[in-house]
């Protein structure tokens, strides 16, 4: 089948403003959008720029807006989006070139919630044991791959990139509800700040956009409840 691929193009060194370029190419319905982008770059227009790495939905490099929705190009099949496909960079972050955006503000916000394990007790001889029930408490939020699909689909983040954003909350949730971690209070204080969870208006865009199907709005709701009640388990 013939697929029409309309791609957002912008090179700040040459272009005054962004434009769209259309490419036609042969594809089968099980081709991924990433395959189409590779074909365009390899055979039609070598100047096209986009990020990719593992190409198997794990590294989170190729998040982009496909037909208006944040998705991973490596997990989106032609049969899911049809033969007329529009590909644009994710919103709310500065475009560096074509489909590549500046991820610094996103990772700055991510770092603010201290996304690492904190426990000042001396380490035991083997591992720090945890019951299956306690592990289940934050199982969903361990799946985040930091692709930024959620954060860049959030209207509050579009308004201000100082807003911590869903991905930062997901990673805060992962450690706050881990009963082996000892810095829950500090993290709660961070997500309680002016640009924290109170700016979430429960739009659910993040949950719809997450390629890992994390229940992000639910996780943010649990953070809000923890802030109000102080109860973690």
């Amino acid at each position: 089948m013939e697929v029409t691929l309309k791609i957002f193009r912008y090179n700040p060194e040459k272009d005054k403003k962004p434009s769209y370029k259309t490419y036609k190419l042969e594809a089968v319905e099980t081709d991924r959008v990433l395959d189409l982008l590779e074909k365009v770059k390899g055979y039609q227009d070598g100047t096209l720029s986009f990020r990719r790495s593992c190409a198997h939905g794990i590294c989170g490099s190729d998040a982009m807006r496909i037909n208006g929705m944040n998705r991973l190009a490596c997990k989106t099949l032609v049969r899911d989006v049809g033969t007329r496909i529009t590909v644009e960079p994710i919103l709310g972050l500065r475009v560096i070139k074509d489909l590549i955006v500046d991820m610094e503000p996103f990772f700055d916000n991510y770092k603010k919630v201290m996304p690492w394990f904190i426990n000042n007790d001396p380490p035991p001889e083997k591992e720090r044991l945890q019951s299956p029930e306690a592990r289940l408490r934050f199982d969903d939020t361990t799946k985040c791959i930091l692709c930024a699909c959620c954060t860049t689909s959030c209207p509050s983040f579009w308004g201000s990139d100082e807003y911590l954003g869903p991905a930062a909350f997901v990673n805060a949730h992962r450690f706050i509800f881990d009963d082996r971690d000892q810095a829950a209070a500090e993290r709660l204080k961070i997500v309680n700040e002016v640009m924290g969870v109170s700016r979430c208006h429960t739009v659910f865009n993040c949950t719809l956009a997450c390629p890992r199907e994390i229940q992000i709005t639910k996780a943010i709701g649990e953070l809000k409840m923890a802030l109000v009640t102080g109860v973690l388990s």
Partner: peptide, 12 residues
């Protein structure tokens, strides 16, 4: 149960 006190959580 794990809890965090109001003063630890901070007021915003």
């Amino acid at each position: 149960p794990r809890t965090v006190s109001f003063t630890q959580r901070g007021f915003d």
